[in-house]
C-alpha cells in the first residue's frame, strides 16, 4: 500500500471581504485566517498563536470582532468580513489608524491590525467609551511592546475624531 496524502477536496465559495465579492477555492478545514492570508493575499491580518488567545488575528464579521484563527472560512459565506485592508479609503486613513500611528499605539506593530479591528467594533457600537471600557474591550488583544497605555490613548483619540466627523456629517 502506497503512502498518500490525506488532502480533502476543495470547496469553492464566494466570500465578501471589505465590501468586495471574492471567489476562492480552499480545503474545507482552513480557517478564515489562513484563507485571508494564504488564498486571498490579505496579509494585514496577523497570527500570534493560532489558538484564539492573543487577538492578533481579529477581524470583523457582520460587525462583530471575531478571532479568524478559530473561525472556519466556510462558515463565513454570505457574511460581511472586514479586515485591516478595508479600513482606509485609499490614502485616507481611518481615525483609528491615524491615532495609532500618531500616538505610538503601534510599536513593533504586529498586534496592531487585530487591536485596531477590535477597537473599531467597540467604537461602532459605543462611540464614547470610558478608558476602563476601552481596556476591557481590548483585554483580548495581547501586546508586548506598549504596555497598552498608548493603545488606550489612541482609541480615546480616535473616538473623539469619529464623534467629530459624525457631527460634521450631521
Amino acid at each position: 500500500m502506497g503512502i498518500t496524502a490525506t488532502v480533502p477536496g476543495k470547496v469553492h465559495i464566494t466570500l465578501k471581504v471589505n465590501g468586495e465579492e471574492m471567489e476562492v477555492s480552499f480545503a474545507p478545514y482552513k480557517t478564515l485566517l489562513e484563507v485571508l492570508r494564504e488564498d486571498l493575499g490579505l496579509t494585514g491580518t496577523k497570527h500570534g498563536c493560532e489558538l484564539g488567545e492573543c487577538g492578533a488575528c481579529a477581524v470583523l464579521v457582520d460587525g462583530a470582532p471575531l478571532l479568524s484563527c478559530l473561525t472556519l472560512a466556510i462558515e463565513c459565506e454570505g457574511r460581511a468580513i472586514e479586515t485591516i485592508e478595508g479600513l482606509a479609503n485609499g490614502p485616507e486613513l481611518h481615525p483609528l489608524q491615524e491615532a495609532f500611528a500618531d500616538l505610538g499605539g503601534s510599536q513593533c506593530g504586529y498586534c496592531t491590525p487585530g487591536a485596531i479591528m477590535t477597537a473599531k467594533a467597540l467604537l461602532d457600537n459605543e462611540p464614547e467609551p470610558s478608558s476602563q471600557r476601552i481596556k476591557e474591550a481590548m483585554a483580548g488583544n495581547l501586546c508586548r511592546c506598549t504596555g497598552y497605555q498608548q493603545i488606550v490613548e489612541s482609541v480615546e483619540k480616535a473616538a473623539g475624531c469619529c464623534r467629530h466627523a459624525e457631527r460634521v456629517k450631521a
Binding site: 495609532f100 503601534s106 496592531t112
Partner: peptide
C-alpha cells in the same frame, strides 16, 4: 512620527512572516 507608523497601521506588509 515613526517612519514605519503608517505602514504598520494599514497591515504591515514588511514583516518577515
Amino acid at each position: 512620527l515613526r517612519q514605519d507608523a503608517y505602514e504598520k497601521v494599514v497591515g504591515g506588509k514588511g514583516f518577515p512572516v
